[in-house]
Structures are given as C-alpha cells and as structure tokens.
C-alpha cells in the first residue's frame, strides 16, 4: 500500500502548500522525517535540479520520492497526489467565480488583485535576475564592484531585450538560443 501512502502524503502537501514551489519545502522536510523516503540532502539536490529543469520543485520532489520508493508507477502516483487538490480547488473556485463575476465586490477585489499579480510577477523577475545577472557570492568574497555584475549575462540580456522587441519569435526560440549562448560562452563558469 506504498502507492496509497505516497498519494496521500503528497496530496496533503498539495492541499496545504500555499504560494507555489518553495512553499512545498516545509512539507517535503516533514515527509522526509516521517517516512524516510528521501533525505534532507536529496531535497537540497532537488532544489538544484529544479533550477535546471522545467518543473516546479514540488512536482519534481514528488516524482523523485515516488520513483525511489515505488518505481515509475510510484513517481506518477505521487505527482498526481500533489496535483489533485490544486485541480479540485481551482475547479470549485472557477465555478463560484463564474456565478459572481458581475458582483461589484468581486470586480473591486480584482482591481486590487491585478496590481498584486503584476507585483508578484515583477518580484519573481527580480529573484531570477539576482542569480542570472549578478554574482553575489564573488562580490561578497572580493568586495569588488566589478565582480558584482555578470557582464556576459547582462550583455546577453540587453541583446535579448531589443531582439524581442524587433523579432516576434516564439519565446521558446529565445529560450533555446539563450541555452546555446550559455553553453558556448560558459555562462555557468564551468
């Protein structure tokens, strides 16, 4: 009944983790302590892997934990366990919203929510920029302002910014090009 346990443990994570990827972390530590399906070190590794794969940390961790405890079916079941509460809750909210769409209070709430939404998106951008365009560890070590900026990355960012205004390629194309540039010019420093 390991599959049922996996499903339920990750269902609980999906049900109570509010606020996206990193919000799942405390729950993952709890699962690790309770069931020993994976270690705290595995969680740290998965954060690194999640930064280098498309999935969210919670999704990745559920697949990984499910796989090491129950093989391929375990990986799939644990991930579905994580996703199920999100899907149910949103289906219910969508139904309620449809009913109250023209309610003036709902409209007024969205007046505030949209500003919050774009503020959260901007904050997400800043958080990525902190790692992508700056080199904080090297700056803290040397204290030299020249070390603070990842110059190659900033140059690429400027070129991408103007290229996207001029050429209407699919975002996926720009992502692919940036990956290539990163490999060719050793953006990761290795």
């Amino acid at each position: 009944m390991i599959y049922l346990q996996l499903f339920l443990a990750f269902f609980k994570t999906g049900l109570f983790a509010v606020g996206g990827g990193l919000a799942t972390l405390p729950f993952l530590y709890e699962i690790s302590d309770t069931y020993h399906w994976f270690s705290h070190g595995d969680i740290a590794d998965m954060i690194a892997i999640s930064e280098s794969t498309p999935g969210a940390i919670g999704i990745n961790m559920s697949t990984y934990a499910g796989y090491i405890t129950g093989g391929v079916p375990g990986g799939i079941i644990a991930t579905l366990g994580l996703g199920t509460p999100c899907v149910i809750i949103i289906l219910v909210i969508a139904r309620i919203l449809k009913k109250f769409k023209d309610n003036p209070y709902v409209e007024k709430a969205f007046y505030g929510l949209r500003a919050a939404s774009i503020a959260m998106i901007s904050a997400a951008g800043i958080n990525v920029a902190k790692i992508a365009l700056f080199n904080l560890p090297a700056f803290q070590e040397t204290g030299s302002l020249l070390q603070l900026f990842a110059w190659k990355a900033i140059l690429l960012a400027l070129i991408l910014y103007f290229a996207m205004k001029k050429v209407k390629l699919h975002p996926i194309a720009f992502i692919g090009i940036s990956a290539l540039v990163g490999i060719l010019f050793h953006f990761g420093g290795v």
Partner: peptide
Amino acid sequence: KNAFAGIRVCVCVLILQAV
C-alpha cells in the same frame, strides 16, 4: 550548468517584457 545560466538570463528578459 552553462545552458541554464543562459536560460535564466532569457527568463528575466521575458518576465520584464511581460510586466
């Protein structure tokens, strides 16, 4: 590591333009 260092730059710019 290198590919994702490149991709992260692109993600910043994509988010900036979305904003």
